[in-house]
Design a protein around this nucleic acid. Structure first.
Lengths: 367, 367
DNA sequence: TGTCTTGCCGAAACCGGTTTCGCACTTCAC
DNA sequence: GTGAAGTGCGAAACCGGTTTCGGCAAGACA
């Protein structure tokens, strides 16, 4: 390469400042600079400060893949999309990914994305991503009850953080929204409105959240002093169509509920459809609550009473938890939950019925 | 490190086979192996074959970040999400990203994701991603008419591929769906059904597709021999609410259209709402077409006549185009378009009106 | 004053690749 | 038979970091 070309490179590609540049500027060797930046004990506090300051002013940041060749760590977080996931996941994806990458970038990390459609390719994705040093650890959206990703990563000692709380918590770190509290609050809210027969349509049974939300519903019923009718509790509804079918079953019940608690907004929208086919007015003849805070719920008529979830913030927290774990913090110490935000819409109203003095005159009970 | 620990590492972390292993197995030096794998001319065909075969059987693949330290290329594609993007983008994101990462992985590449909310952070994302060697090139979703990303990347000689065709095509490669053909087909379809007054609601003006689709609409009108009424052409509608407002304006027209061509499904759903408020029956009193093929359109009553787009395939193609460009193919040679798939729903029907012998008896014209 | 720590840093090896350079060996022309 | 050109590979430098090792100087202790 000619001197001219060299010069061109330096100016045009605005050559990065390397560790050598920093070392030269301080009259130190690069080994000293390296150890100073990594906080080795055998570097004096004063030189460490000098190095740090100089790195700051020279805008020096070590090249992650140059470090990776020796350390094996690339400063990048992995995330594998599963296309088989039901649609409820989709609307959040943009916010969630934005949150993850934002959280990662505040610590100098980046996000590496892969996708898988089959079960085998799922595990293979994790394997190659880790082996090729493309990811130092993984974020696992949608914790499942029996999670093959967890099994694989745990076995291979790869750091990971779950979005959700699995039943087998050993050596896991996680972030989650307390969906169970939301379900409990939903029941409370409905009970306060005078409802006594409350149905429940749970989400996907393979996911960890389903068990929690069922429990939350039961706790709410108990706290409100209401009897639980097992025939009013349905499981495993993840789409709007599922919600429609399940709602029809509940509403066709000999003694139908006056309110339905749904574990997922999409399902609640299915309840809207079911109510429409029966000419029941949502919020008057039938109350419904959801969970997730999707946009379609807010746009529905009437707006859905639900619990909104900040998926962007969740992604950001997951990223920082994972980074801490990669840096050595024990997984069991990295567990966090936050509450969902109750969002009252028009889909919940006073319980209808003859013995309800609150009910509107024109709102007769049905049958 | 003790010999024991060394052994442990080797067995447990299933040490990768390195270039040295391959060289040793063949009694060659690693420099020869490297040049053989990279197709240097000064390596004989026979040794190249031997090396390739051995690499295959030993399952050797060079560590991308080890190469990157010398070459600057990391075998990873960059993609920066813009949260400000309107919602129409969201439902496709999962498929699109899955397509990109799938396309990338077939060539041994991975996908690096970043996000930005402000304009400044957008360009900054590109800059740092490239400077830190986290991305060899970029995929730019949603080409804009005046695209700051393009300006920046072009100036800095960073490879990129657009999803969409910008007006200033110089030195750009792209993949796109021919939305203009779809608009033309939509008009043709409506004209065949007897419609003569056809409105048009275009999408976001900042995006490159808007100009193309408008042109397609006009071509369709011309081909059908229909007069274009400028007051029936509206612009810049990207949300359902936009579509509602625009549709109301069209339907409140003194001489309203009997059909509306929408450049976006979300907007078409807004037309549904507008029609409902005027008690117009979609597909009977008013025909509507969309574009995108979102799920909500298929679920609407009646199902939306639209043009569906395979975003997963698009993502995959974009990835391979970008990889080719990174490998040296000239950008101008990497341009591809495909057609959208016409999907007839119930939202388009015979034109209503007194002089239409096809119209159902009970379907009177309005006014 | 001599020796033994201790603190602090430089020298050099190393990570897994790429790339330049030069040398030995053939091939060909004369 | 000799020189020149061309072929095919090894040796070694290099990329930008990390990590081990060793040594010097200052202080501690006897």
């Amino acid at each position: 390469m000619s001197a001219n070309q060299q010069k061109l490179l330096t100016s045009e590609r605005r050559a990065r400042t390397t560790i050598n540049d920093v070392a030269a500027a301080l009259n130190l060797t690069k080994s000293t600079v390296s150890r100073a930046m990594n906080g080795y004990a055998d570097i004096s506090k004063s030189t460490q400060n000098r190095v740090m300051k100089m790195a700051e002013t020279m805008n020096y940041q070590p090249l992650s893949h140059a470090q990776a060749i020796k350390t094996g760590l690339n400063r990048s977080l992995g995330l594998v999309l599963q296309l088989s996931d039901h649609d409820a996941h989709r609307p959040f994806l943009a916010e969630f990914l934005a949150g993850v990458s934002a959280g990662a970038s505040t610590e100098g990390y980046t996000l590496t994305l892969a996708s898988a459609d089959t079960h085998d390719s799922l595990i293979a994705s994790f394997r190659t991503l880790k082996q090729d040093g493309k990811a130092d650890g993984f974020i696992l959206p949608r914790a499942m009850v029996s999670d093959p990703r967890v099994a694989f990563l745990r076995k291979n000692d790869v750091p990971f953080v779950l979005y959700g709380r699995p039943p087998d918590a050993s050596n896991c770190s996680w972030f989650d929204i307390r969906g169970e509290d939301a379900m409990r609050t939903a029941v409370q809210h409905l009970a306060d409105l005078g409802h006594r027969r409350i149905g429940f349509i749970n989400g996907g049974n393979i996911y960890a959240y389903a068990g929690l939300r069922r429990q939350g519903f039961l706790l709410g019923m108990q706290a409100a002093g209401l009897r639980v009718d097992p025939s009013l509790m349905l499981e495993d509804a993840v789409t709007q169509e599922d919600g429609f079918q399940a709602s029809r079953r509940l509403l066709d019940h000999a003694n139908p509920p006056t309110a339905i608690v749904c574990a997922i907004d999409q399902v609640a929208l299915g309840t809207y459809r079911a109510a429409r086919t029966l000419e029941l007015r949502i919020g008057i003849d039938l109350s419904v609550t959801g969970y997730d805070g999707i946009q379609a719920g807010a746009q529905a008529q009437p707006p859905l009473t639900t619990f909104s979830v900040d998926n962007k913030a969740a992604g950001a927290r997951l990223a920082t938890l994972l980074i801490q774990q990669i840096r050595g913090v024990a997984p069991a110490e990295l567990r966090e939950t936050v509450a969902a935000t109750f969002q009252r819409g028009g889909s919940t109203g006073p319980a209808p019925g003859k013995n309800d003095h609150l009910s509107n005159v024109e709102t007769g009970g049905r049958q």
